[in-house]
Amino acid sequence: MWVAIVVAAGEGRRMGFKKQFLDLAGRPMWLRSVEAMISGGADEIVVVASPGDVHRMQEEARVAGRELHFAEGGETRHASVVSGVKCALELMARHQVDPARSAFAIHDAARPFVAEEDVRRVFEAAIRFGGAVLGTPCRDTVKRVEGGLVQETVPRDNLFLAETPQAIRADLVSRVYLERPYSADDSPTDDSGAMEAAGVPVVAVTSTAFNGKITTPADLDYARWLARERWGRAEHADWTRV
């Protein structure tokens, strides 16, 4: 069983609005990310949302004809993922599947363009090795800077830029997410980091296509353009009314 946990609990402080609701060719961005995970083979989807957004997302999913599960986000990204993981564990227990043959993949709602084949490869790698992270080998020259001055050039041969999804085999989930409490100050910034800290081997899976994260206002125009190129002007529900 493959469960995708789509983290869509952001408050939009950097953007000035909640970017998970950005319209991309007739779908809100969070739903595009959900559909990418479904296309990649996910059997169940858990969406982690801010408590105030759950009803809106449930309605948007209903309009789109998607049956999804929802969990409420926490104070940090890791806390939000833990909430999603607990929901995913309940689903797995309900289906009575073998944890050693199941995996959870955590994906940022702000990465709607991930390739379905890459999603599938991450799930498969997690089941085989324990953990997996999608990403891209570093191609740029990297500088370490302190106080505005370059201190050194960092060798890039072994550097890997992490993306999502990042997946874990289900029989290792408790060890990483339930047995290791984190405070807001020491919370891991991604799931691969949490797996590494718990001693879970993590395989680097190289992206085969653009999987950029929509993070700043400068990303918006490119995201809208790429959405039109990829999906055209899909049938457009009026998302402002659901």
Rank of each mutant, 00 (worst) to 15 (best):
R180Y: 02
T216N: 09
R180P: 06
N211Y: 04
F210Q: 03
G193S: 15
L220V: 15
S174P: 01
E229N: 10
V176D: 10
E229Y: 06
M195K: 04
D219M: 05
P188H: 00
E196I: 15
A234K: 09
A198Q: 09
R224C: 09
D190L: 06
P181M: 03
A198N: 09
A184Y: 04
V202Y: 02
D185N: 11
T215P: 01
V203S: 04
G193R: 12
H236E: 13
H236F: 13
A227F: 10
A184Q: 07
M195I: 00
Y222C: 07
D219V: 04
W225T: 13
Y222P: 00
A209Q: 10
A237L: 08
I214R: 01
G232P: 02
D219L: 03
V176L: 10
F210L: 06
T215S: 14
G193N: 11
V202W: 05
A197R: 14
A218I: 07
A184N: 08
R180T: 13
G193K: 13
D191F: 05
A234Q: 15
A204T: 08
T208C: 02
S187Y: 01
R233W: 07
R224S: 10
A198P: 09
A234P: 01
R228S: 12
R233Y: 11
A204N: 14
V202S: 00
R180S: 08
A197C: 06
E229C: 15
S174Q: 14
R230G: 01
D191S: 05
A194H: 07
V205I: 13
L226D: 03
Y182L: 05
E235G: 12
R233A: 13
E179Q: 12
H236S: 12
S174V: 05
W231E: 04
S192D: 07
V200E: 03
A204D: 08
A234T: 12
F210H: 09
A184V: 13
L178F: 15
G199S: 03
A198S: 14
A184T: 12
Y177A: 07
F210D: 12
N211K: 04
V202M: 00
R230A: 09
R175I: 00
M195G: 01
T208S: 11
S187D: 10
V205N: 00
S174M: 10
K213G: 11
T215F: 05
D186H: 06
A237V: 10
R228A: 14
L178R: 05
E229F: 03
R180M: 08
K213T: 15
A218V: 09
G193A: 15
